[in-house]
Write a protein that binds this DNA or RNA. Structure first.
Length: 644
DNA sequence: TTAATCAGCGCGTAC
DNA sequence: GTACGTGCTGATTAA
């Protein structure tokens, strides 16, 4: 089993950026500094507390009485693993006031645990009580399998901190150190270090697990009080209460539903890929004159650039290896027939190892479906992310890649998939935020925006735009969304930096409002230290005044990109909340199952399609009205590709 | 000494 | 611009 603390450990090391302006407290997370700080942190050993075990039905009833009298209670689940859709409940902890908490152990016998939870149910069901927790999606999912479906309102400390400090980390241990100067009992002290044969919560002695679990509920409740007082001054209350908190149970539902996969189809595809890979592999060995590991960039680089010498001044990577990325190989594809074979090999290998062979292994034995995990507190812009597996990067671009989308199917023959996606949402948001007349007109007239842009920057009538011109214009529009640099654009469409700059200059002449808006975004970041989305989601940009031009440039592109990408995220989140509410209020048997940034996928009961399709379209279109039209493309199909 | 594990990196997928 | 996963590789840790 993996360490349970992974449940809350979301950020990669590389993502840690510590630029806390106010008090500098947050700089204590470099490992050595952490050791120094440890001495000053309070712990369970030097902090007064009363943590009680409730292990009889009478004692549990007493707990419920206390919960029902409270305005809010905090709860936490202890489980046998980190996969909420496939683990067992080991115990629950509750807190209603600081330094006091109860722990209720749950036996391995499912029915006995069900009985315990039935006693607790009135507290969970009561909509007059605020339920507090840390990463509550996990707990709600676990409880779902025990027939407990807690009613809101909710307060998730992880999400509260996410709206306050989106770039920081949000796990409980971190929050406890920063906001309470407290270091909680580590999970490792209970179940051992991560790497080796880590133990199981089920096997931890009651007295130990009680202290750990009760402390979690206690600390989380204390954090709630700190964080809730910080929300108003950060202008984050509305975002928290009207978007992130209501979205949390929606994501819980989506994860629980999961999506069905056509395993036979994938297995056949895997055999096809294997055959093709085998022959490509042998062709490569023939052309190279020797066998080597094609999947090793290092070995491949040596073959291409030292043995075959297909380039006399090969590009190098950060670590001085030969660069063999797709863009590099693409440029060399005329030099030697091996290059195209390598590109083919790469594509097929990627599909096979990342998707075709992996997805079937991710099927949950309990449900027979795939349950991704949406992370609601990881991106600095407000987007969601998806892991285990990541269902937000399923291929769509290439012919063979699209085969994988065909394997996403409805749950049973009574169902059909519905996919709805926003058309050009980020460009529309720029048009809205900037007020640029020309771009607004293009959307109001319903033009193909890339063709319209091409017509403008190449000064030709829109009907005479060539495919090449449209392609270039599309890249420029993409670049605009990302906070364009001449370098980035030149890389993208394979022209010189100078030519790219000319195109950008012309773009800004044609869309002057866009240029002004970008300058304004950067100015705002300089003045206030942050930029924000339509819903007031902030992104702090401490590097905006950096003396380092690279860092400053990066911050400036973020100042442009964050409100755009983030406002699109706000919009689809609002749509998701509204759609989910309507589907459930009407007791429909159709379900939202996937979100891919600008797209929602539903598993729809065929008999309900007449209701669901217009509902989805309406709710997405009007989630966050803009000064220009919002368009939603919507389709149905027997698989995700067909519906797309 | 050897085997297992970890972490960083190159790469490639999505929007 | 925002993410996540896989495989390779060299370094570190455990047996």
């Amino acid at each position: 089993l993996k360490a349970l603390f992974n449940e809350l450990e979301f950020r990669t090391l590389a993502k840690r950026v510590f630029n806390e302006p106010e008090d500098g407290q947050l700089t204590l997370f470099e490992e050595p500094a952490e050791e120094v700080e440890k001495a000053e942190l309070r712990t369970i050993r030097n902090t007064q507390h009363e943590y009680l075990v409730a292990d009889t039905s009478d004692k549990i009833k007493e707990v419920v009485e206390q919960l029902l009298q409270a305005q809010e209670f905090c709860f936490d689940t202890e489980t046998t693993g980190t996969d909420a859709n496939n683990c067992e409940l080991v115990g629950l902890s509750f807190a209603v006031k600081p330094h006091h908490a109860w722990y209720i152990p749950c036996p391995p016998d499912y029915n006995q645990t069900l009985e315990i939870l039935q006693i607790l149910k009135p507290a969970f069901d009561n909509p007059g009580i605020l339920k507090v927790g840390q990463n509550m999606k996990f707990d709600l999912t676990v409880l779902h399998y025990y027939d407990i479906h807690p009613a809101g309102p909710f307060f998730d400390t992880m999400l509260a901190h996410y709206v306050l400090e989106p770039e920081q980390r949000h796990n409980m241990d971190y929050l406890a150190r920063v906001y309470l100067n407290y270091e909680p009992v580590s999970i490792e002290s209970l179940i051992g270090q991560k790497g080796g044969r880590q133990g199981n919560m089920r096997d931890v002695e009651l007295s130990l697990i009680k202290e750990y679990a009760a402390e979690d509920a206690d600390i989380t409740l204390q954090l709630k009080h700190k964080l809730s007082s910080l929300l108003p001054e950060a202008g984050a209350e509305k975002l928290f209460n009207e978007i992130e908190m209501p979205l949390m149970p929606v994501l819980t539902s989506m994860e629980i539903q999961g999506v069905k996969i056509d395993v036979e189809n994938l297995q056949q595809f895997s055999r096809d890929l294997e055959k093709d890979l085998f022959s490509i592999e042998n062709e490569i060995y023939q052309l190279a004159g020797e066998r080597f590991n094609i999947a090793s960039p290092r070995q491949l680089g040596i073959i291409l650039f030292e043995k075959l010498k297909i380039d006399d001044k090969p590009k190098l990577t950060a670590t001085k290896q030969y660069a063999t990325g797709e863009d590099v190989l693409e440029k060399l594809s005329g030099r030697h027939p091996i290059v195209e074979k390598i590109l083919d090999y790469r594509e097929l290998m990627k599909l096979k190892s990342t998707y075709v062979d992996t997805l079937p292994q991710m099927i949950n034995p309990r449900t027979g479906r795939i349950h991704t995990s949406y992370n609601q507190a990881v991106t600095s812009t407000g987007r969601l992310s998806s892991t285990n597996p990541n269902l937000q990067n399923i291929p769509v671009r290439t012919e063979r890649g699209r085969e994988i989308r065909k394997a996403f199917i409805p749950r049973n023959p009574d169902y059909i998939l519905l996919a709805a996606d926003y058309s050009q949402i980020e460009l529309r948001i720029i048009a809205h935020l900037s007020g640029d007349q020309a771009m607004q007109d293009a959307f109001r007239f319903g033009f193909d925006i890339h063709a319209a842009t091409a017509a403008k920057i190449f000064k030709v009538p829109i009907e005479e735009v060539t495919r090449e011109q449209r392609r270039a214009a599309k890249s420029v529009n993409f670049g605009i969304v990302y906070g364009i640099s001449a370098f980035g654009l030149s890389q993208n469409i394979g022209i010189s930096k100078k030519e790219a700059q000319l195109i950008i200059d012309e773009y800004f002449r044609q869309y002057p409002g866009i240029k002004t808006y970008m300058e304004k975004s950067i100015a705002t970041a300089r003045e206030r230290g942050y930029v924000e989305t339509i819903m007031g989601r902030r992104r702090y940009l401490p590097d905006i005044n950096s003396v380092n031009a690279n860092m400053r440039g990066f911050a400036e592109r973020n100042a442009i990109n964050a409100p755009i990408q983030g406002s699109a995220a706000d919009m689809i989140k609002i749509a998701m909340i509204n759609i989910h509410r309507e589907l459930r209020n009407r007791n429909l048997n159709s379900w939202m199952v996937l979100q891919v940034h600008d797209e929602l996928v539903f598993d729809v009961k065929r008999t309900e399609m007449d209701v669901v399709k217009p509902l989805v379209k309406e709710m997405m279109t009007n989630a966050l009205p803009l000064s220009i039209p919002v368009e939603v493309d919507i389709n149905t199909g027997e698989n995700w590709l067909e519906a797309h």
